[in-house]
Write a protein that binds this DNA or RNA. Sequence first.
DNA 1: CTTTTTTCTTAAACTATCTTAAGGTCTTTT
DNA 2: AAAAGACCTTAAGATAGTTTAAGAAAAAAG
Lengths: 201, 201
Amino acid sequence: MCILGQSVLLMHSSLLAYASRYIDLTQEEAEYFVSLFRHRKLLKRQFLLQAGDICRYETFVVNGCLRAYFVEPSGSFHIVQFAVEDWWTSDLNSFWNQTPAILNIDALEPTDVLQIEKENLDRLYKEIPKTERMFRMMLTKAFIAHQQRIIDNLCKPAMERYLAFLEKYPNISQRVPQAQIASYLGMTPEFLSQIRRNLMR
Amino acid sequence: MCILGQSVLLMHSSLLAYASRYIDLTQEEAEYFVSLFRHRKLLKRQFLLQAGDICRYETFVVNGCLRAYFVEPSGSFHIVQFAVEDWWTSDLNSFWNQTPAILNIDALEPTDVLQIEKENLDRLYKEIPKTERMFRMMLTKAFIAHQQRIIDNLCKPAMERYLAFLEKYPNISQRVPQAQIASYLGMTPEFLSQIRRNLMR
DNA sequence: CTTTTTTCTTAAACTATCTTAAGGTCTTTT
DNA sequence: AAAAGACCTTAAGATAGTTTAAGAAAAAAG
């Protein structure tokens, strides 16, 4: 039925497996839930969102790896988030207010995602109120993680931030080039390289 | 009826005014809503939460000013959030999982707050589902603000972070000692002082 | 298998920020 | 009014992190 990559059915089941961590859905609810998402396949380096555009979707990553990053006027850029399997990503501000995005999101690997539009998300909240609970819970977790990151950036020196990253995202640190990790951690790739050398002794 | 400070009735009305930005409540719902909160008065320097304790409440600030901060083993500390009128604060991770808090929260000025326990908040979501929408929206906004702060910390030098802070929180910057602001911005008070001198020219 | 491109490392000079230590101002307490 | 405590400023020396530039290694493309 489907030779290259996963079938859409399999994608839906990973989204439902994810949802089941937070809420219980009946067969019927589950079908409605996934029906509101559309599947999209991204090649390496393909954009999911470009700064200036309006972010129309909340995106669930089925497999692969995305990065969300911010480009400064000077041209230098900073990675705000990596998103691998079972993560959500978007420019939440842009999605929420339907205003131009400040983040770019593109694929570091070939990636499958499921996307839901704002109108459909609002519809979903209305039809199946407990889904709103799920999103509130997800957001709570994301908020806590962001807060921890702020604390780490404030008080940990570069080496400790790197070690914390390795521990927290072992899955990501092996798939993503070091320069990207350096950008996420707020340091230059050269300095990260030095840190790694020092760690080897 | 109440000579010193505001009456509890007035406090409730500022909470309801806040809620009305997000959702419409009937008279009856509004009464139930505020009935789940308890009022608390804090003296300057009094603790609302100490690291190690479990954060039992989500806290709404009616007036005054709180700070949430993280203390490192070395003894140095970092301010994670200021909370003035109409802000919410807590150690969300501790509140959510009912695990020991890592944040301290205390008052920089005499402060009035309204607090809701986790069980009551869950009850509230159940009784008046649209309140869950309100908290989801609040959380979304807070998440966006945190993300912006991460971006700023990653890419802006100290002076620009200070200027951005002044612009974003004019209300806070005039009430709070500079050393506290320096801590929030992730720099030493001495360095902030230098920045301010340079700005005067 | 060779070439090209991307990624990683090294090192020296440079810059932003921190540390320490001292003195000054303002506010609160006695 | 004097003393004490909190807060702010200044400046010199120390450190963490950046910049630049070059070469090595690895991965992708032909």
